[in-house]
Protein backbone atom coordinates (compact mmCIF):
# COMPACT_ATOMS: atom_id res chain seq x y z
CA UNK A 1 0.00 0.00 0.00
CA UNK A 2 1.28 3.42 -0.91
CA UNK A 3 2.29 5.51 2.07
CA UNK A 4 0.77 8.93 2.58
CA UNK A 5 2.34 11.92 4.30
CA UNK A 6 0.40 11.21 7.48
CA UNK A 7 1.94 7.75 7.76
CA UNK A 8 5.16 9.46 8.84
CA UNK A 9 3.73 11.38 11.78
CA UNK A 10 5.53 8.98 14.12
CA UNK A 11 8.61 11.07 13.36
CA UNK A 12 6.85 14.10 14.83
CA UNK A 13 5.94 12.16 18.00
CA UNK A 14 9.46 10.90 18.41
CA UNK A 15 10.91 14.37 17.84
CA UNK A 16 8.55 15.78 20.44
CA UNK A 17 9.75 13.32 23.06
CA UNK A 18 13.39 14.02 22.26
CA UNK A 19 12.92 17.81 22.26
CA UNK A 20 11.60 17.63 25.82
CA UNK A 21 15.04 16.46 26.92
CA UNK A 22 16.64 19.62 25.57
CA UNK A 23 14.08 22.34 25.99
CA UNK A 24 11.08 21.77 28.21
CA UNK A 25 9.15 24.64 26.65
CA UNK A 26 8.64 22.49 23.56
CA UNK A 27 6.22 20.45 25.69
CA UNK A 28 3.57 23.07 24.89
CA UNK A 29 3.38 21.65 21.36
CA UNK A 30 1.89 18.51 22.86
CA UNK A 31 -1.38 20.37 23.30
CA UNK A 32 -1.90 19.69 19.59
CA UNK A 33 -2.35 15.99 20.49
CA UNK A 34 -5.15 17.05 22.79
CA UNK A 35 -6.98 19.58 20.69
CA UNK A 36 -6.76 18.09 17.19
CA UNK A 37 -8.49 14.78 18.11
CA UNK A 38 -11.18 16.66 20.01
CA UNK A 39 -11.78 19.12 17.19
CA UNK A 40 -11.95 16.30 14.62
CA UNK A 41 -14.39 14.26 16.70
CA UNK A 42 -16.64 17.21 17.54
CA UNK A 43 -16.60 18.62 14.02
CA UNK A 44 -16.83 15.44 11.96
CA UNK A 45 -18.04 12.78 14.41
CA UNK A 46 -15.16 10.44 13.57
CA UNK A 47 -12.03 9.18 15.21
CA UNK A 48 -10.05 10.51 12.26
CA UNK A 49 -7.13 11.40 14.49
CA UNK A 50 -6.71 7.86 15.86
CA UNK A 51 -7.41 6.32 12.49
CA UNK A 52 -4.94 8.39 10.51
CA UNK A 53 -2.85 10.98 12.22
CA UNK A 54 -1.88 9.65 15.64
CA UNK A 55 1.91 9.57 15.59
CA UNK A 56 2.12 7.84 18.93
CA UNK A 57 0.03 4.91 17.70
CA UNK A 58 2.23 4.71 14.60
CA UNK A 59 5.35 4.75 16.75
CA UNK A 60 4.11 1.84 18.87
CA UNK A 61 2.99 0.03 15.72
CA UNK A 62 6.45 0.43 14.25
CA UNK A 63 8.46 -0.50 17.35
CA UNK A 64 6.20 -3.40 18.27
CA UNK A 65 5.65 -4.54 14.70
CA UNK A 66 8.61 -4.04 12.43
CA UNK A 67 11.17 -3.82 15.24
CA UNK A 68 9.62 -6.83 16.95
CA UNK A 69 9.57 -5.38 20.45
CA UNK A 70 6.12 -6.77 21.19
CA UNK A 71 5.13 -10.22 22.45
CA UNK A 72 1.93 -9.86 20.38
CA UNK A 73 -0.23 -11.51 23.02
CA UNK A 74 -3.86 -10.71 23.70
CA UNK A 75 -4.52 -7.87 26.10
CA UNK A 76 -6.28 -9.08 29.29
CA UNK A 77 -10.07 -8.82 29.25
CA UNK A 78 -10.28 -6.31 32.08
CA UNK A 79 -8.08 -3.85 30.20
CA UNK A 80 -10.56 -3.56 27.37
CA UNK A 81 -13.61 -3.43 29.64
CA UNK A 82 -15.59 -0.20 29.77
CA UNK A 83 -14.92 0.03 33.49
CA UNK A 84 -11.20 0.18 33.02
CA UNK A 85 -11.26 2.42 29.95
CA UNK A 86 -13.59 5.02 31.45
CA UNK A 87 -11.99 4.62 34.88
CA UNK A 88 -8.59 5.36 33.39
CA UNK A 89 -10.04 8.35 31.54
CA UNK A 90 -11.39 9.77 34.81
CA UNK A 91 -8.14 9.07 36.66
CA UNK A 92 -6.19 10.74 33.84
CA UNK A 93 -8.48 13.77 34.03
CA UNK A 94 -8.12 14.08 37.80
CA UNK A 95 -4.33 13.93 37.49
CA UNK A 96 -4.42 16.44 34.64
CA UNK A 97 -6.41 18.92 36.71
CA UNK A 98 -4.09 18.42 39.64
CA UNK A 99 -1.24 19.35 37.29
CA UNK A 100 -3.18 22.45 36.18
CA UNK A 101 -3.71 23.38 39.83
CA UNK A 102 0.03 23.17 40.50
CA UNK A 103 0.58 25.33 37.44
CA UNK A 104 -1.90 27.86 38.78
CA UNK A 105 -0.11 27.98 42.14
CA UNK A 106 3.11 28.90 40.37
CA UNK A 107 1.26 31.45 38.23
CA UNK A 108 -0.20 33.01 41.37
CA UNK A 109 3.22 33.17 42.97
CA UNK A 110 2.19 30.90 45.85
CA UNK A 111 4.66 28.21 44.95
CA UNK A 112 8.14 28.13 43.47
CA UNK A 113 8.63 26.47 40.12
CA UNK A 114 9.69 22.83 40.42
CA UNK A 115 11.93 21.70 37.61
CA UNK A 116 11.02 18.04 37.72
CA UNK A 117 9.22 15.62 35.43
CA UNK A 118 6.86 13.39 37.40
CA UNK A 119 6.81 9.93 35.92
CA UNK A 120 3.78 7.70 36.52
CA UNK A 121 2.35 10.40 38.82
CA UNK A 122 4.87 9.32 41.47
CA UNK A 123 8.53 9.46 40.55
CA UNK A 124 10.00 12.96 40.46
CA UNK A 125 12.86 12.98 37.99
CA UNK A 126 15.28 15.93 37.97
CA UNK A 127 14.90 17.73 34.65
CA UNK A 128 16.54 21.11 35.25
CA UNK A 129 18.88 20.75 32.27
CA UNK A 130 15.96 21.26 29.92
CA UNK A 131 15.20 24.72 31.27
CA UNK A 132 17.40 27.60 30.29
CA UNK A 133 15.29 30.49 31.51
CA UNK A 134 12.60 32.14 29.46
CA UNK A 135 10.73 35.32 28.74
CA UNK A 136 7.48 33.57 29.58
CA UNK A 137 5.87 33.65 33.03
CA UNK A 138 7.00 31.00 35.49
CA UNK A 139 3.56 29.39 35.38
CA UNK A 140 3.94 28.76 31.65
CA UNK A 141 7.22 26.97 32.35
CA UNK A 142 5.63 24.95 35.14
CA UNK A 143 2.87 23.89 32.73
CA UNK A 144 5.52 22.68 30.29
CA UNK A 145 7.09 20.48 32.99
CA UNK A 146 3.67 19.19 34.00
CA UNK A 147 2.50 18.53 30.47
CA UNK A 148 5.70 16.77 29.50
CA UNK A 149 5.19 14.58 32.58
CA UNK A 150 1.77 13.60 31.23
CA UNK A 151 3.18 12.84 27.78
CA UNK A 152 6.17 10.89 29.06
CA UNK A 153 4.05 8.92 31.52
CA UNK A 154 1.59 7.88 28.83
CA UNK A 155 4.46 6.95 26.52
CA UNK A 156 6.02 4.75 29.21
CA UNK A 157 2.68 3.06 29.93
CA UNK A 158 2.08 2.57 26.22
CA UNK A 159 5.58 1.19 25.77
CA UNK A 160 5.18 -1.34 28.58
CA UNK A 161 1.83 -2.59 27.26
CA UNK A 162 3.30 -2.63 23.75
CA UNK A 163 5.98 -5.06 24.94
CA UNK A 164 3.59 -7.20 27.00
CA UNK A 165 0.66 -7.31 24.59
CA UNK A 166 0.05 -6.09 21.04
CA UNK A 167 1.96 -3.13 19.58
CA UNK A 168 -0.90 -0.67 19.75
CA UNK A 169 -2.27 -1.81 23.14
CA UNK A 170 -2.12 1.81 24.29
CA UNK A 171 -4.95 2.58 21.83
CA UNK A 172 -7.28 0.35 23.86
CA UNK A 173 -7.09 2.52 26.97
CA UNK A 174 -5.75 5.81 25.57
CA UNK A 175 -7.79 8.53 27.33
CA UNK A 176 -7.98 10.63 24.17
CA UNK A 177 -9.22 7.63 22.20
CA UNK A 178 -11.84 6.82 24.83
CA UNK A 179 -12.93 10.44 24.98
CA UNK A 180 -13.20 10.89 21.20
CA UNK A 181 -15.13 7.61 20.91
CA UNK A 182 -17.48 8.88 23.63
CA UNK A 183 -17.96 12.15 21.74
CA UNK A 184 -18.75 10.19 18.57
CA UNK A 185 -21.29 8.05 20.46
CA UNK A 186 -22.99 11.10 21.93
CA UNK A 187 -22.97 12.88 18.60
CA UNK A 188 -24.57 9.95 16.75
Amino acid sequence: MKKKWYDYLWIVSLTYLILGFFNILSAWLGLLCFFIPLIISVATGTKGYCNRYCGRGQLFGLLGGRFGLSRKKDIPGWMKSKWFRYGFLIFFFVMFFQMLWNTYLVFAGVREISQVVTLLWTFRLPWHWAYHGSLFPQGAVQFAFGFYSVMLTSTVLGFVTMILFKPRSWCVYCPMGTMTQLICKIRK
Binding site: K47, N51, G61, S81, R168, C171, G177
Partner: peptide, 14 residues
Protein backbone atom coordinates in the same frame (compact mmCIF):
# COMPACT_ATOMS: atom_id res chain seq x y z
CA UNK B 1 -19.30 -3.58 21.70
CA UNK B 2 -15.64 -3.84 22.72
CA UNK B 3 -14.12 -2.29 19.57
CA UNK B 4 -12.26 0.94 20.38
CA UNK B 5 -12.37 2.23 16.79
CA UNK B 6 -8.63 2.88 16.68
CA UNK B 7 -8.40 1.95 12.99
CA UNK B 8 -5.35 -0.34 13.20
CA UNK B 9 -7.29 -2.97 11.24
CA UNK B 10 -8.12 -0.54 8.46
CA UNK B 11 -4.42 0.15 7.90
CA UNK B 12 -3.45 -3.49 7.42
CA UNK B 13 -6.41 -4.69 5.37
CA UNK B 14 -5.13 -5.50 1.85
Amino acid sequence: DVCVACGSCVKVCP
